[in-house]
Amino acid sequence: FLQQRGPGHTVADGKIYRKGYGDFLRDIQERLASLDFNNDMDALEKRDEWEGMAWVCRGMILLGKRYAALARDMAAKEKDPAWRRDLLDIAAVCDVVPEHRPQTFRQAIQMYWFTHIGVTTEMNNWDAYSPGKFDQYLEPFYDRDLAERRLTRDDAKELLEALWIQFNNQPAPPKVGITLKESATYTDFCNINTGALRPDGTCGVSDVSYLILEVMDDMRLLQPSSNVQISQKTPERFLRKALEISRKGWGQPVFYNSEAIVQELMYLGKSLDDARACGIASGCVEAGTAGKEAYVLTGYLNIPKVLELALHRGYDAYTGEKAGIDVGDPLQFASYDDVWQAFLKELKYVVDVKVAGNNLIER
């Protein structure tokens, strides 16, 4: 399954806007230096995970440097002065992110996109890696850039439109076999979350939220998917704007209930702070705590197929291959209960195989 799909279904939190990958690398190296192999029985697993994280940080930093170098190389050969300036601007942005924390609206968007393509490249090109409360993460950069006259509202909108094009140009990989039959036309499932509650429980709608709605409506692309979170605190103007777009019938935005998401996450054991700060839908429609968990998809369980295996002594009637266990000759079953018990034995075997595989994959 994971040869064609990455274990995504994960939502980013705001840490990549507060630190660069160089900062993360220094944090990790400090943790590695503090490991206590005498007293910490988990020290070896921690070392392995942190060393893996360090490789990721170094790879992300190198990725940014390569983009900067390529943009400068292209600029040196470019005859069009306007495009040459644009290339040098790209290089300047890539000098900052992802190694350092972003300072501007444009750098913040680029920081997310570097992170997105880093994840999807490692995770086989796709599967529902989402930026979470994108409007709230971008808001301080947007406000500061406007105040310092580094950006206009139209400039910000154009940058977001460019990002939407990047999302739409990131397809799910080609499918083969059974995966082709059940999901040949899937998109990347990135989901932009707009207008949700802030960590302190106040309304999170800002001008960036309206910009995202406008971009969504102007571009009308297949992806990214877009949703709005509606709460009792949502301004009526924002709700009406979202409804105006939705009534056009092209499928976006989706509407989610902020209070219901918070309540559901708390029911599952999350703290109010985590539920309120990170109650985010991603991918299909999952809700979870951004930056603290993943809703990893590692395959499906076909219950009718299990019954078929049980009634064919563990053989797949479609391929003729042995895929399960022999739970008895169905011609000798004397009652429905015999069929049911055979099915349960087959199901236990299949579930055990799946869980064992999942444990290996996730480790």
Rank of each mutant, 00 (worst) to 15 (best):
A71L: 09
T194Q: 06
V11T: 09
L35D: 03
R240Y: 09
T202E: 09
I361A: 08
G132D: 01
K354Q: 13
D23Q: 12
D27Q: 13
T104M: 08
R66W: 10
V353R: 10
V351S: 01
A356D: 13
D316P: 01
C278G: 02
T104P: 00
A294H: 08
G279R: 02
L301P: 02
A75F: 06
Q263C: 06
Y300R: 14
D316N: 09
E244K: 09
D218H: 06
I28H: 00
L243Y: 04
D48E: 12
I165N: 02
Y300C: 11
L243Q: 15
D338V: 14
G249Q: 05
G20V: 11
A342F: 01
A75W: 04
M266W: 01
A82V: 14
I117T: 08
T121C: 10
D36S: 14
L211H: 04
R47E: 14
D73N: 07
S130D: 04
S258C: 05
L297K: 02
I90N: 07
L211E: 03
D95A: 14
I178P: 02
F134D: 00
E346H: 02
W340G: 07
P304I: 12
S130I: 00
I261H: 01
P131A: 10
Q29F: 01
H100M: 13
D89T: 11
G8H: 03
S206W: 04
G64Q: 07
R153A: 08
F105S: 01
K77T: 08
Y349W: 11
D89P: 01
K46R: 08
D273V: 15
N124G: 13
C190Y: 03
W50M: 07
Q252I: 12
N125R: 15
A294G: 13
E259T: 10
Y315P: 04
